[in-house]
């Protein structure tokens, strides 16, 4: 078959996306390498592997699921950008949907592709700038701020605050599938209270996905989408 010299916009986006993803991966790996070289320390491989073993079963599975689930919704350019800059479910995806609705274009059309990419690129730029300003300008105060005796109880409780607020929206929308995994994890913690977060969340995800799949197959989620 003759090779088409006139690549479509989608083809070009995929070429740029592939190149930029691989270079972003290399840049990202330079970060721990840079830290090791600067601090002149080389942490034992065993420790790194032990930490990774706790994350890989969940995170790498989630990575595969996320690529499959989000790619159709984000468009080509949006997918590459979103996976490099992160915060997809809580920021990039709603942002792209919001912009496509505002511009009155369909997802998976070329117009939708363009608007989604513009939305996600803008969102990534704004997030990166806000984080950079926040960290660089406030860095000298961050330590004092988080060590402040009055504020310390608040920072000690940041995880319940963060996950309570983040969970509220999910629980309203998906309350049917929320009870089972939380009850399972509470029971697990009753018997093994100091179980690490990573092991516990693996248990939680298995219970949550397993419970939801069971309810789905039994038709208990038919009216929900």
């Amino acid at each position: 078959m003759a090779k088409n010299k006139n690549k479509t916009y989608f083809d070009r986006v995929h070429s740029w996306g592939r190149i930029s993803t691989i270079t972003a991966l290399c840049a990202l790996l330079m970060f721990p390498i840079g830290i090791c070289l600067y601090l002149n320390v080389f942490p034992p491989i065993n420790g790194i592997l032990a930490g990774l073993l706790k994350l890989i079963p969940t995170y790498w599975t989630v990575a595969v699921v996320e690529v499959i689930v989000y790619t159709p919704m984000l468009g080509a350019g949006g997918t590459y950008l979103s996976f490099v800059t992160g915060n997809i479910a809580n920021l990039k995806l709603p942002c792209a949907i919001n912009a496509m609705e505002g511009a009155n274009v369909k997802a998976n059309s070329e117009e939708g592709e363009v608007v989604s990419t513009i939305a996600i690129a803008t969102s990534s730029i704004v997030t990166t700038i806000i984080l950079a300003i926040g960290v660089i300008i406030f860095a000298p105060f961050l330590q004092a701020f988080t060590d402040n005796a009055l504020l310390k109880p608040a920072f000690a409780q940041v995880l319940p605050a963060l996950f309570g607020a983040l969970g509220a929206g999910y629980f309203i929308k998906h309350w049917r599938i929320s009870f089972f995994p939380i009850i399972v994890m509470i029971i697990v913690l009753i018997f093994s209270g100091s179980m690490g977060a990573s092991t516990l969340l693996f248990v939680g995800i298995v219970a949550s996905v397993g419970g939801a799949l069971f309810m789905y197959k039994k038709g208990m989620l038919d009216r929900v989408k």
Partner: peptide, 12 residues
């Protein structure tokens, strides 16, 4: 379901 598993771990 995956998100609820993650969030639920911290809530529990």
């Amino acid at each position: 379901a995956i998100f609820i598993g993650l969030i639920g771990a911290f809530i529990a």
